[in-house]
Design a protein around this nucleic acid. Sequence first.
DNA 1: TAGTGTGAAGCGTTTCACAGCC
DNA 2: GGCTGTGAAACGCTTCACACTA
Lengths: 292, 292
Amino acid sequence: MSQHRPVGTPGRAGAVPALPDLPEATVARLPEYLRALHNLAETGNDTVSSEELAAAAGVNSAKLRKDLSQLGSYGTRGVGYDVALLIDQIEFVLGLTQSRAVALVGVGNLGHALAGYAGFAGRGFRIAALFDADPARLGEVINGLVVRHIDELPQVAAEESIAIGVIATPATAAQSVADQLVAAGVTSILNFAPCVLAVPDGVDVRKVDLAIELQILSFHEHRKAALTGLPAAAGPAAGLGSPNGTTPNGTTHGGAATAGLTALPGGLAATGTTEATPAGTLRSTNAEAVGS
Amino acid sequence: MSQHRPVGTPGRAGAVPALPDLPEATVARLPEYLRALHNLAETGNDTVSSEELAAAAGVNSAKLRKDLSQLGSYGTRGVGYDVALLIDQIEFVLGLTQSRAVALVGVGNLGHALAGYAGFAGRGFRIAALFDADPARLGEVINGLVVRHIDELPQVAAEESIAIGVIATPATAAQSVADQLVAAGVTSILNFAPCVLAVPDGVDVRKVDLAIELQILSFHEHRKAALTGLPAAAGPAAGLGSPNGTTPNGTTHGGAATAGLTALPGGLAATGTTEATPAGTLRSTNAEAVGS
DNA sequence: TAGTGTGAAGCGTTTCACAGCC
DNA sequence: GGCTGTGAAACGCTTCACACTA
């Protein structure tokens, strides 16, 4: 494996060269590397060492090198990585050489924010259509897009070649929306509703749940309080030790944070693609929601 | 370890009994179990088997049992778990017996949505204060709270005993905000800005980045397309196989999804608490933002 | 009989340390 | 000399399978 196949030549997607079987953990970090690389490129850097890039992405250099080597990366010993080249490589692997059309369902509180989010276009995504079931919201124009009824999803999805859907509805509606997305040909779903979705094989689901993120932080607060013997939050940064120490668990206190999971009882926060359950089963009904 | 210490008696937090050293992966799943349990309680269930609860939470029963046994759980062989008791246990471990005050910084697009999010109160959190640096936004009332200038953070944090901060500002402002939060005594941060934060030891950071979530989904789309030989998205659900099959990687296609990481180049999506970098270093400057 | 609790095996990920190359 | 690429060790998490118990 001294020269792992380059993963395919960036530039034209279409020849679709064999994609390597990247570890999920690596895939999850590539976007972070990509962001760091774009920053470096903007500040005029042509090359980076694994040490520098790792610092910018919040990981250690060994991990970064191993991740990049999985791509059959183009580093130069004694020098580092070519920033522009690496950007192309990663964008190719992530399938970002084409702009992907995304359907957003649920234009409530959160849905509005997502629809207005500027960070998509620059990252390879285009919100192609907005949907909702609430008649009161239909016709509303958000960021230049009209809110359509969810029944129009099949046609629009076909017209716009939509393969990715975002669910920002209340939990009660999420499963039904997921079913409709799948029926319309969507094969990847980002779910902001606080519930578990059952989808057929071949469909990827990622969950983002804010409340769960906060609850995980709460656990650590609780632990810290238990350790110091203080019941509540202490005053301004009292005994903060030396910068960055890594806890056995991988949970790092201090330093740049990155890693873990999430899910929120009525909110946001993200988990990866995983686990299987008897599809069609469970249809949890959580009152509070994110969207409308 | 036939009878792992019960983790402490739920009810009064203050005696602060020794919290067990839970694996991060377990901690990240507890909130999901909790949500599932609340759903079950609402539908009148008094007890659940590991099989049922696992299905409702989107994990397999072995994992669930192992997780709950870490808490020194109160299951009954041949019967299952007492729903109410388990809820108490998990809420205690997560430190949710008290309502935690949260400071939200950045009331732009996303910040607004978060401030108006109803799912907090019911989950043990209370947004106690809103901050922004933009003079145009000061004084604005969102959901009953006035937007204050970030300079007021120290006083307010002390008055309200705020230990958790949420950053929903542009990436350019995030590090500075984090520094101010830490200086005000905040020891847990949920970061929605697409950048790596450097914080002192003892402070936990979790990152939520929507664009990264989408990019991870994009990778899977890319892979699926490469496998089927189709360049773009196929039409409506064509050859979807049997429900739920688990891929070697842990990445599951189909079935309920949960797990992984996230981070978004200008957006949302969550990662866990982790990794360390030379604190104080890097201060990436990413143009596009989330908040104002 | 039904279902929890848990050693032990299996896997994936992280970290180490260094060979190899520029 | 400096830095990448990578075997191999270490670690943590997941899954299995079954002893144990209500």
